[in-house]
Design a binder for these strands. Structure first.
Lengths: 211, 211
DNA sequence: TTCGTTATGTATCAATCGCTCCACAATGAG
DNA sequence: CTCATTGTGGAGCGATTGATACATAACGAA
C-alpha cells in the first residue's frame, strides 16, 4: 500500500558511506549527502531519521562487506591462509585507494566523541569481532597442525588486531606498500603464519622490494 | 613597544589542544575555544590567524611534548630500554586517561581530509619521525649487542610503528591494559627487546594478568 | 604628556548548518 | 472511480558556524 520508494537503498548507502568514509561525520554536510545520493532531504529524513541515523546505516553497510570478507576467507581457505589473506586484501585495498580513505571503521573509531559512549561501544564491539576472527582462525590453525602450538591465540589475536589497525592508520597518511608489508610480514612470521604473496620470506635482509 | 599580550601562550595551547584532542577539529567550535582558553575571538584571530592556525599550533604543542619524551628516553636509558619504555609510557597514558582521547596525532591523521594534502603530509612526516626513533634505537641496540642481530632495523621499526598506532586506536575505544600489553609484548619478544614491566615474559600462556 | 601601535572586548556579520513544513505525486484498498 | 497512506520536491526555518568591525585599553617612544 501507499507510494513505493523510488531509490535503491543499497545504492544510496554506497554513496553515503563513500562520503562519510572519505570526510568523516562532522565534515560531511547534509547538502553534500543530498547531492551525492541523489535524494531529497525529505526522503533522507523519512528513511533514516537524521544525519546520525544515516551515518549509522552507512557504517553498517560498510561493515557488512567487511564481515562478508571475513566469512568468505573462513570458508574458502585454511585458517592460517585466512589470516594472511585478510592482511593481503587489506594492504591491496590500502595502496590502491587513490583517495587514501583508510578504513571507515577506524576513522569512525577515532572521530567518535568521548560524549557518545553508545556509538563508541558499537565500534568496540566491531573491533572485538575482528579480534575474534583472528583468534578463532589462529586456534583452528593450531588444532589442524598448520600453525605451531605454544603461542596463545588470545595474544596472537591481540597483536594481529593492533597491527591491522596500525596499517589502517598508515593507509590514510602513508599508504606505502613496503611499509605495510614490512610491518605485517614481521608480525606473521614469528607467529608461524604463511608469508604475504610477493614478500620475501627469508629471515635476513632482502633487496627485492621496491616502494 | 605597544600593548603586551595578557595571555600565556603555553597555557592557551594547553587548553586548546585539550579540546581539539578530545573532540577533533571539526567538532570543536570557536565559541568553545574562546570559553576554555579564556581569551576573546579578537585575540585568537590576531595571534593564530584562524581556526586551522590555532589547531596547527595546538597540535605542534602536543607534538613537542611527544618529541621531548622520545629525546628523554634516548639519553636516559639504553636503546632497547628506550623502545620498551616508550610503549610502557604509551600504555600507561592510554589506560589512565578517563576521557579516552587516544593520541592527538593519530586522531588528526584520520580526520585529515583527503583534500588537504599539506596537513596530511605534515602528519606523515611526524609518523616518519617516530619510525626513525624506533629504527635508530633498534640499530643502536644491535650495535651495542643489547639486541640480537639478524633482523633489519627497518622492518622492526615498521612493525613497531604499526603496533604503536594500533594501540593508540584501541586507546580511544577499548583502553584495556591486557589487550595492549598482549599486543605489545608479542611484538617486543620476537624482536629481542626487553619485556614490559609487570608483564609475563614466558612464552607459554600466563594466568597472572587481569583486565 | 602626546602619539603610534598593538591587544582586548563586544556586538555582530554573512554563510552555512541540520532539519522541517507543506504541497504534490504515486501507489493499494474499497 | 475515491480515499487513505506514504514518498518526493523544494523552499525555507531557527540556530550555529567561522570570522570581522570597531571602540577602547595598555603599553613604548618622543
Amino acid at each position: 500500500m501507499a507510494r513505493p520508494r523510488e531509490f535503491d537503498e543499497q545504492a544510496v548507502l554506497d554513496a553515503a558511506s563513500d562520503i562519510f568514509w572519505a570526510k568523516g561525520f562532522e565534515a560531511t554536510s547534509t547538502r553534500e549527502l543530498t547531492a551525492r545520493t541523489g535524494l531529497t532531504p525529505s526522503s533522507i529524513y523519512a528513511a533514516f531519521g537524521d544525519k546520525r541515523g544515516l551515518f549509522r546505516c552507512a557504517l553498517d553497510h560498510y561493515l557488512t562487506r567487511l564481515r562478508e570478507k571475513m566469512a568468505m576467507l573462513e570458508t574458502s581457505v585454511t585458517p592460517a591462509q585466512a589470516i594472511t589473506g585478510f592482511f593481503e586484501h587489506t594492504i591491496e585495498r590500502s595502496v590502491s585507494d587513490t583517495q587514501q580513505r583508510g578504513c571507515m571503521l577506524v576513522n569512525s573509531a577515532l572521530e567518535a566523541s568521548p560524549a557518545d559512549p553508545e556509538f563508541r561501544d558499537g565500534v568496540a564491539v566491531e573491533l572485538s569481532r575482528i579480534e575474534a576472527f583472528f583468534r578463532n582462525q589462529f586456534a583452528a590453525g593450531q588444532e589442524r597442525g598448520e600453525i605451531p602450538a605454544g603461542l596463545s591465540p588470545e595474544t596472537a589475536a591481540q597483536q594481529l588486531l593492533a597491527v591491522l589497525l596500525g596499517i589502517r592508520v598508515l593507509a590514510r597518511v602513508r599508504p606505502e606498500r613496503a611499509l605495510m608489508t614490512g610491518a605485517v610480514q614481521q608480525t606473521l612470521q614469528p607467529l608461524g603464519l604463511p608469508p604475504l604473496k610477493g614478500a620475501a620470506s627469508s629471515t635476513g635482509k632482502s633487496h627485492r622490494d621496491k616502494s
